[in-house]
Simulated assay, not measured.
Amino acid sequence: MDITLWIVQGLLAAVYLVAGGLKLVRSRAQLVATGRLDWMKDNSDAAVKGVGAVEVLGALGLILPEATGILAVLTPIAAVGLVVVQVLALRVHLTRDERQPLPANVILLLLAAFVAIGRFLG
């Protein structure tokens, strides 16, 4: 089970590092221009950067505490935080009637919940 948790943590961390990193290093206008991030049109630059920072911190929290053995309880807490991120993302997309991102949001939510439960119980 530990190997499965590490694989899921690694995949989630990679996804959130890329997604959050792009939100931190690119401008909101550049991200909106891709045509896949319409929700950003209605949010400030600071809000987009804030989401990016939360995603990057969540990604780091999935790996570093458990890998170093320092405050390992932070790993499942980070996973719970990413579950909250996905619940909020689902809410945003549903209120905007954006159906395309929903499957990815649900998958990320379920994977983060799996890590949270697995690490809290393990």
Rank of each mutant, 00 (worst) to 15 (best):
D2I: 12
T4K: 09
L5A: 01
V8E: 08
V8A: 06
G10A: 12
L12V: 02
A13M: 09
A14R: 00
A14S: 02
V15N: 01
V15G: 00
Y16T: 00
L17M: 05
L17I: 02
V18C: 00
A19H: 03
G21C: 00
L22R: 10
R26V: 05
S27C: 02
S27I: 01
R28Q: 04
Q30P: 02
L31K: 01
L31F: 03
V32R: 03
G35C: 06
D38R: 14
M40H: 05
M40T: 10
M40E: 13
K41S: 14
K41R: 15
D42P: 06
N43S: 15
S44Y: 12
D45L: 06
A46P: 14
A46M: 10
A47N: 10
A47M: 15
A47L: 14
G50S: 12
G50E: 12
V51D: 07
V51M: 12
G52C: 05
A53C: 06
E55Y: 03
V56A: 01
L57T: 09
G58V: 06
A59H: 07
G61Q: 01
L62R: 02
L62K: 04
I63G: 02
P65L: 01
E66R: 15
E66D: 11
A67Q: 13
T68A: 12
T68C: 03
G69I: 00
I70W: 15
L71D: 05
V73S: 11
V80T: 14
V80D: 04
V80H: 06
G81N: 03
G81M: 15
L82D: 07
V85I: 05
V85A: 10
V85E: 10
Q86M: 13
Q86V: 05
R91D: 13
R91M: 13
V92S: 11
L94W: 14
R96C: 06
D97F: 11
E98P: 08
R99G: 02
P101W: 00
P103W: 08
P103Q: 05
N105F: 13
N105M: 12
I107L: 08
L109Q: 05
L110V: 14
A112I: 01
A112F: 00
F114K: 01
A116W: 03
I117G: 12
R119Y: 13
